[in-house]
């Protein structure tokens, strides 16, 4: 039983082993894509915005797969969702460890914190990457912000994500700041007769 390949395992019975690819291929593909964007757009700001937008579209598709595969992940409120992104998402999708911290003060009773930071040192998209002179404004990791924003949007949480610290720019670690703008609660039960 245990020797059975992951591909034969019935879907959903347990946490299936994710198919993996080498990080090199992924990094090189992302890098080549960013270079092409830099070539196409006139300003670095436009590239940053496009990376974020592309990330959001990736995130909105990624979240389905993520929730289907990672059972037992809780995303009921902002705190648990941010926690899942950092501890489960980064590990299972990007193969690196990340942690959450710097929770904002709880604004009023019951609503929980509305901002936090995700910290990580190893960043699989920046292997072999060095920002050349003249591109200091490029936010190479903006795609990650987009992915998190797009993914959380699918589960009703509108967040802004910004890069606070970037190791490509000489920081001692990477930090993404998540701020919850609005949590649209799902309404149950849905009316069938509409």
């Amino acid at each position: 039983m245990s020797a059975r390949g992951a591909s034969n395992a019935p879907r959903g019975s347990q946490l299936p082993a994710q198919e993996k690819v080498s990080n090199e291929l992924f990094t090189l593909t992302y890098g080549a894509m960013v270079r092409q964007l830099l070539h196409d757009f006139e300003t670095v700001e436009e590239v940053n915005a496009e990376l974020d937008a592309m990330g959001a579209r990736i995130g909105s598709r990624l979240v389905d797969d993520f929730l289907a595969n990672a059972q037992g992940v809780r995303c009921a409120d902002f705190k648990s969702a941010a926690d899942s992104v950092a501890r489960v998402g980064f590990r299972s999708l990007l193969g690196v460890t990340a942690r959450v911290g710097a929770w904002s003060e709880t604004s009023d009773a019951g609503s929980g914190p509305s901002a936090c930071s995700i910290y990580f040192e190893e960043n699989p998209i920046t292997d072999f990457v060095e920002l050349p002179r003249g591109l200091e404004e490029l936010s190479y990791c903006n795609v990650l912000c987009g992915v998190i924003r797009g993914a959380l949007e699918q589960i009703g949480m509108h967040v802004t994500v910004v890069v606070v610290k970037d190791m490509l720019k000489g920081a001692d670690g990477n930090e993404l700041r998540l701020t919850l703008k609005e949590h649209a609660a799902e309404t149950y039960p849905f009316k069938d007769d509409d």
Partner: peptide, 11 residues
């Protein structure tokens, strides 16, 4: 480090 294949697919 290995990344999930779906990340590459979506990228």
């Amino acid at each position: 480090v290995q990344v999930a294949e779906i990340c590459l697919d979506l990228l």
